[in-house]
Design a protein around this nucleic acid. Structure first.
Length: 250
DNA sequence: AAACACAACAACCGCCTGGAA
DNA sequence: GTTCCAGGCGGTTGTTGTGTT
């Protein structure tokens, strides 16, 4: 259901993400955060553009993201907020923890848009003045009855790690505070990950890079080991990663 | 069983915004 | 004040799955 992988003229990969790429990106961000999306793929050993990495992380790899099975309550909330905000998905998504703007947008276009057209003859004109501000969106989230959001869902506004994540990952600023030669982000970022359940979750990809480290090509994590995993050529890279991944599942 | 139409959704693209230099 | 650039947002596209004829 997605574009087939291909390489553009700059040698950047486009299209569907492989599991190995997901593992690399997730592993890197969990260790170092997304200190700079444009440079991140290089250091994570990904042949992707920064935007692509950001999108993949935001829409799929973030631990709090869930997909599919919108509840009736969520549908109702989306419709209500859309009436107030129009297509401001980034605002709407604030009231739906665990969802992504892309998910909501897709869901709207494939389900709710038609439904509202059928059910209503109301004007298309959106009154943006009634659209919640950022603070108001947060309040809506808080004021929304728990069963509205929580029904059929393990997620909650309280346990969502969105705040934790965003505060962690957006605060590192630009490359200026980054040791590009050494290939490591600011040490405080690295250390910050030590706290919190999310960061201490076991991570399979780490083991892949342990192999990398043992491969003898001086690509240890401490030396910025995510910077191109050398032992793997493109030929066998994916197969090898899958093999190790599968072994770790046992 | 085959052909077709439509639904679903991951991913891309281009523009806008805000902050740093 | 201006320019540059990274991040974010919303619209759109491309491909696959599913249902219908």
């Amino acid at each position: 259901m997605v574009r087939a992988p291909f390489y553009d003229k700059n040698g950047l990969k486009k299209g569907e993400w492989s599991r190995e790429e997901d593992d690399k990106l997730r592993s890197y961000i969990q260790r170092f955060g997304h200190w700079n999306w444009r440079l991140l793929p290089k250091f994570a050993g990904l042949k992707r553009c920064g935007k692509s990495c950001r999108l993949r992380w935001m829409n799929f790899l973030r631990p709090e993201v869930r997909h599919g099975n919108f509840t009736e309550e969520e549908d109702a909330l989306i419709i209500k907020l859309h009436e107030q905000c129009g297509n401001r998905w980034s605002t709407i998504v604030k009231s739906l923890p665990g969802r992504t703007d892309n998910d909501i947008k897709n869901h709207w276009h494939t389900h709710l848009n038609n439904r509202t057209k059928r059910n209503s003859t109301t004007s298309d004109v959106k009154d943006n003045s009634s659209c919640p501000t950022e603070g108001e969106a947060e309040r809506i989230l808080i004021d929304t009855p728990a069963n509205m959001i929580l029904e059929s869902s393990p997620w909650s506004p309280v346990t969502s790690s969105t705040t934790e994540l965003s505060s962690f990952s957006s605060g590192s600023g630009r490359m200026s505070s980054f040791n590009a030669i050494g290939g490591l982000p600011p040490s405080e970022i690295y250390e910050a990950q030590g706290s919190g359940d999310f960061w201490t979750e076991p991570f399979v990809a780490d083991n892949i890079y342990d192999y990398n480290q043992d491969g003898g090509n001086g690509s240890s994590l401490e030396e910025g080991g995510f910077h191109m995993p050398l032992p793997f050529d493109d030929m066998c890279y994916e197969d090898y990663a899958y093999l190790i991944y599968d072994l770790m599942q046992v």
